[in-house]
Design a protein around this nucleic acid. Structure first.
Lengths: 342, 342
DNA sequence: TGTTAGCACTCACTTCTTTGGAGTGCTAAT
DNA sequence: ATTAGCACTCCAAAGAAGTGAGTGCTAACA
C-alpha cells in the first residue's frame, strides 16, 4: 500500500477540519471549494475514493459524504497537528485566588475546564507514587479512641480514628509519637515494609501490641489509595448530536458518574512515561462505552513524585488543537498551585 | 364544589396506581376491568369526567386516557398511601460491614438507594446544627506550618494547615493545646462567639497574637459549612420515557451534577420540622428544572443535633409507597451507623 | 496522463396522507 | 343510577412521494 502523497494529505486535512466544525459528513464539492489547490469535485472524489480505500475516511452509508475514521483522526493528531504555543489561558486569574483545599481546587479545575472546552472533563487527586511521610501524630480523642493524623509531602493530610481496647496513658502516647515520627518520617509508602514494622514493634517493648494496632491503622491510612476522581460537564455531551441519543448518552454519563471505570483510563495514562499528553481515539480507549468518543488525558506532577491525571472526554471530532493546548497550560499551572502552600 | 365520594376515591386510586405502573394515559375500559366494584366503562367515564372537573386528573389531549394531575398525586400521597410497615430492607446487610469514613458511607448509601429504587438519589453530609467540639489539637508540621485538627461530635474530623510567621516552641504549643481544649471542648459553633475568643486571647498572654491567628483558622475550619451533597443514579432517569427527551434529561442531569441547586431543596426540607418525609410534586419543588419530577426527601438525625437529608428524584409517577418505605428505613438505619463508631 | 464535466443512481430526510385504534361524550334503553 | 351503542376526535405508526446531497463511472479534454 502506497503512502499518502502531498495532495492526499491536504485533502484529508481539509476533510477532517471541516468535519470537526460541522459534525456532518463532508462531500467532495465542499472540499473542492475549501482547499487552496483548485480542484474540481470530481478529482476530489477520486482522491477521496483512494483515501477511503486506505482507511483514513469512511462513508456512514452509500452516497453520503465522508467522515474521518479512527485511523484518520489518529493521523490528524499525530502529523497534522502542529503544536503551536498557546497564549496563557484565563486559568491564570483563577490561580491567583486559589481556594483552600485540594479537593475544592480540583473540582473547580474540572468545572472550569468543562466550561471553557464544552466537553466532559475529569481530574484525579495526585497519586502518591513515592509521597513521603512528613509528620505523624497520635492523640487521644477519648478513652477508647485514638486519632492518627498523618501529613504527607505536599501537605496532604490524612486521618483515621483507631479504636482502642486497652488504656493508654499520656506518657506512653508521647513516647509512641516520638517513636513513630522518628521512624516513619521521610519514608515513602513502599519503604514502610514489614521490616520497618517489626523493628518498630521491637522498640516499643511492652507496648508492642498497641504499636501493632496503631501501625496497622497508620499503614492502612497511608496506603489507602484515595484516588478520587472528579468529573464535570457531563451534560456537555448533549451538545454533540452524534453522542446524544438516549442510549449512548446514558451510558456515557453513567461512566462519568460511576467513576471507577475511569480509573482504568487514569492508571493507563499515568503509566505512560512520555510527553504527558495522551490521545485515545474511539476504540483505542480502554473504556468500552467511550468507543464513540475521544479521550485526551494529561499528567500533572507535583514534583514530589505525586502524579495526577486530567482528562477531557468529547466526540471524536473534538477540537484537538484547543484541547491539547488547554491541557498543556493546565498541567503546568496545577504544578504551581500546589507547590506553594497558601 | 362537592367532595369526593367513596366510589370516586376508589376510581382515582385505580387510575393513579395503573398510571404509576404503565406511564401511559389510562382509559375507562382499563379501569372498569381493574376495580373490584364492577362497573362498565361508561360509568367510569362519567366519574372520570367528574374527577377531571374537580382537577384530580387531566387529559393530555382530547380522546386520550387520563393521567393524574399534581393535585391528584397530592391526594394520593396524602390520603391513599397508607404507610404499611415495610419489611427490613436489604440495607441491613450493608450496615454490618460499614465502611470507614462518612464520606464513603454516604456515597454508598446514595448508590444503593439509587440501585434499589431505580431513581436518582441525593444525600447530604449531616449539617452540624449544634455539633460540638470534642477535641482540638495543634501540632507543628515544620517550622513554618501549624496543623490544626478538630474532632467534632460524631467523629467528624476537620483539619487545616495554618502558616506561621513566628517561631513557636514546643512548650508553648503544649500550653496552647491545653488552653484550646479546655476552653473549646463541648462548645457548639454558635457558642464560640467573640466573647470566648477575646477571653482566650487574654489568657494566652504574650501569645495572644498567635492565638488570634490560630483561632481564626479554627473558627473558619469549624464553621466551614461543608454541606456536601452526593448524588447517584442520575442515569436512572433515562428509564422513564417522559423524562428522557434530550432537553429535559440534560437539564435534570445538570442539576444533579451541579449540586448547588439541590442545596435549596435540602435547606427547605431540613427546616421543615414535621415527620421528616417531604414530598414535592412537580411545581411544588423549589427547583424549576424538576417541575416534571417528584422529589421525596427525608431527614436523618444523628442525635447530636446533626441533621442531614436524603432525597429521591424521579418521575411524578414514582412508586411513592416503596420510596417512602425505603427512606423511612434508611433514615433510622443511618442513625445507628453513625452512632456507634467502628 | 492527470483533470474535469456530465449523468445516472443511491439513499437519508422531510412532508403529506392514510389508516387503525384507543378513548371520549352523548343519547337512549334498561 | 347504570349501561350499551354509536359517532366523533385525535394520536401514532405506516406508507408514499418528492428533494437534494453525494457518489461512481465514463468520456472528453489539455
Amino acid at each position: 500500500m502506497e503512502e499518502l502523497d502531498d495532495r492526499k494529505i491536504k485533502i484529508l486535512d481539509a476533510i477532517i477540519r471541516t468535519y470537526l466544525e460541522t459534525g456532518e459528513p463532508v462531500g467532495s464539492r465542499t472540499i473542492s471549494k475549501y482547499t487552496d489547490l483548485n480542484l474540481s469535485s470530481a478529482t476530489i472524489r477520486n482522491e477521496m475514493s483512494d483515501l477511503e480505500e486506505l482507511g483514513y475516511i469512511v462513508q456512514p452509508h452509500t452516497s453520503a459524504g465522508r467522515i474521518p475514521s479512527d485511523k484518520g483522526y489518529r493521523f490528524y493528531v499525530d502529523h497534522l497537528l502542529l503544536n503551536k504555543e498557546k497564549e496563557i489561558s484565563d486559568m491564570k486569574e483563577f490561580v491567583i485566588e486559589h481556594t483552600e483545599r485540594m479537593e475544592q481546587v480540583l473540582k473547580q479545575v474540572a468545572k472550569m475546564l468543562a466550561q471553557t472546552t464544552n466537553y466532559a472533563t475529569m481530574i484525579t487527586t495526585p497519586k502518591s507514587t513515592g509521597g513521603k511521610v512528613k509528620f505523624v501524630q497520635l492523640s487521644l480523642v477519648d478513652e477508647a479512641q485514638l486519632l492518627a493524623v498523618i501529613v504527607m509531602d505536599g501537605n496532604l493530610v490524612k486521618n483515621k480514628i483507631i479504636p482502642l481496647n486497652q488504656e493508654l496513658d499520656n506518657e506512653t502516647l508521647l513516647k509512641l509519637n516520638i517513636l513513630l515520627n522518628s521512624t516513619l518520617n521521610g519514608l515513602s509508602i513502599p519503604e514502610i515494609n514489614l521490616g520497618t514494622i517489626s523493628r518498630l514493634k521491637e522498640q516499643a517493648g511492652e507496648y508492642s501490641d498497641i504499636v501493632g494496632i496503631v501501625l496497622d491503622g497508620v499503614a492502612e491510612t497511608i496506603s489507602r489509595e484515595e484516588l478520587e476522581i472528579y468529573t464535570s460537564g457531563a451534560t456537555n455531551i448533549f451538545k454533540y448530536p452524534e453522542l446524544s441519543d438516549t442510549q449512548k448518552a446514558s451510558e456515557l454519563i453513567y461512566a462519568l458518574e460511576e467513576k471507577q471505570q475511569l480509573a482504568s483510563l487514569v492508571t493507563e495514562s499515568l503509566q505512560n512515561e512520555n510527553t504527558g499528553i495522551q490521545v485515545y481515539i474511539g476504540d483505542e480507549s480502554p473504556i468500552q462505552t467511550m468507543k464513540d468518543c475521544s479521550v485526551v488525558t494529561a499528567t500533572y506532577e507535583l514534583g514530589d513524585g505525586m502524579k495526577g491525571s486530567v482528562g477531557i472526554i468529547g466526540p471524536k471530532r473534538m477540537d484537538y488543537e484547543k484541547v491539547m493546548g488547554h491541557l498543556k497550560d493546565l498541567t503546568s499551572q496545577l504544578d504551581s498551585i500546589f507547590k506553594k502552600p497558601t
